Amino acid sequence: MLYTRPDYYKEFTCTAEQCEDTCCAGWQIVIDSASMKKYRGEKSAYKKKLHRSIHWLQKTFKQDKEKRCAFLTEENLCDMYLNLGEKSLCRTCRQYPRHMEEFENVREASLSLSCPEVAKLLLSRKEKVKFQYRETEEEEEWDDFSPFLYSQLVDARELMIELLQNRKLSIENRIVLCLGLAYDMQNRIDADELFGCGDVIENYRKQAYFSSAGRKVDRYRKNIKAQYQFAHRVIEDLYQLELLKEEWDMLLQEAQVRLFGKGEDVYAEIMDEFSEWIQTEYQWDWNIQCEQLMVYFIYTYFCGAVYDERILVNAEMAVAAVSVIWNLMAATWLKNEKQLDLEDVCSIAYRYSRELEHSDENLKRYWNILDEEKLLFR
């Protein structure tokens, strides 16, 4: 078994009640079978409180009207933890924000961006993310799993991350290269030419492709209508998803009014001024932050295409995520009288992640919307 994780994985420490938000509100917490069995057998004086706070048929913890977990105290601490200790926690609570993607003989660990502390850890990082590997003798076989397709996806993802971390290129150029690679691989898959994916990967290592991507970026920068339509569309699409927190809806509505309410020309003026401010006044390097976000989304989701062969939409989803975060940053900048700090950016990033990554239905729906609308490289 091969275990992989980003090099900042061990740096995470939960800030508990000091956290600006709580991971115990806003979504239902699913209880694993082993914990359900343990809770049923609880013998202590805490049994009554424990049992009346669980939806036994749904296998979830109950919530109050504000969608706060029944065990969450006013101080944002876990009452179960305080009374029964750390071992009483279910798998979800024990592991969050740690996340695991599983493939045949591979386990890929990550930290979820939906945690404010993880968002801060990632977005304040200046160094390129590296990945750590550990191999054990365990093995397992999965049905309906294509080892060859998976190997091609891993190779493509490694190149994508290498391209995204090539700081000699503009961040737009790097993103276009990743999209182009995914697009060309998708065409091979659709044409039942899986063995041609290796040639695609090798082609994208060539300098000629860097120049081609640069020309596409230049054309896109001049196409105000395309920029406006894409930015507006990917935010509007979020309204089709289940709303998990009310403040997210307010954030989207403010962006709609401030950025898109007066048409594409005004949008272009706002974004020109915002981009200039980011380059000259913002205390952090947005190019690096954008790189870290793209690497996060590509690492976490790209190889999932081994199950459905939807390669391109996994790359598009990463681009859509960065676009949404960038535009919400601009809207927040306007709201704050043209000021923006790291705390603002982290808040936007983790709130986006909470709405998308903590609802399987939202994630699948957004994937399908992007796939249907064919907004990029189609």
Rank of each mutant, 00 (worst) to 15 (best):
L72P: 03
T22Y: 15
Q289K: 10
Y366G: 02
E102R: 12
E162H: 12
F145C: 04
K168A: 10
T300H: 09
K38Y: 11
K10V: 04
L194N: 00
G41Q: 13
S110N: 15
Q152P: 02
E254F: 09
D7M: 01
I175W: 06
A208R: 14
A182Q: 01
R365P: 01
T332S: 09
Q256R: 09
F210A: 02
E193A: 07
S347Y: 10
Y352Q: 14
S211T: 07
I175C: 12
K48V: 10
C19M: 07
H51T: 07
K216F: 11
C24N: 11
M36T: 02
N287D: 15
S211K: 08
L113V: 10
L340A: 01
L111Q: 04
K43H: 14
S323H: 05
G41W: 02
S151H: 11
N203I: 02
K262E: 11
E247H: 13
R219T: 07
D144N: 14
H358I: 04
V129Y: 01
R219M: 10
E355C: 03
M1V: 06
E337T: 04
G85P: 01
E86I: 03
D190Q: 08
V306S: 03
T22W: 13
L84G: 02
A191F: 09
K67M: 12
M317A: 00
A268I: 01
A16R: 15
Y96D: 05
L252F: 04
S35Q: 04
L181W: 00
Q28D: 11
L77C: 13
E137L: 08
S88Q: 02
D272Y: 11
E135V: 15
A34S: 11
V257A: 00
C24F: 11
E11V: 02
Y307P: 09
R215V: 12
S88W: 03
L356D: 10
M271W: 01
H99C: 10
F148T: 12
L149V: 02
N368L: 13
L123R: 02
G263C: 03
E236D: 14
L123I: 04
G196L: 14
A268Q: 13
Y9C: 00
Y133Q: 13
E361T: 09
E75Q: 14
S211D: 10
K245E: 12
M80N: 09
S33I: 04
E140W: 09
A318M: 02
A34G: 00
E361K: 10
C78A: 06
N287S: 13
D144H: 14
S114C: 15
M1K: 01
V234S: 07
R310V: 01
F195G: 05
E236Q: 14
R219F: 07
L153D: 09
K364F: 14
F297Y: 15
L259T: 02
L164R: 02
E372K: 03
E108L: 04
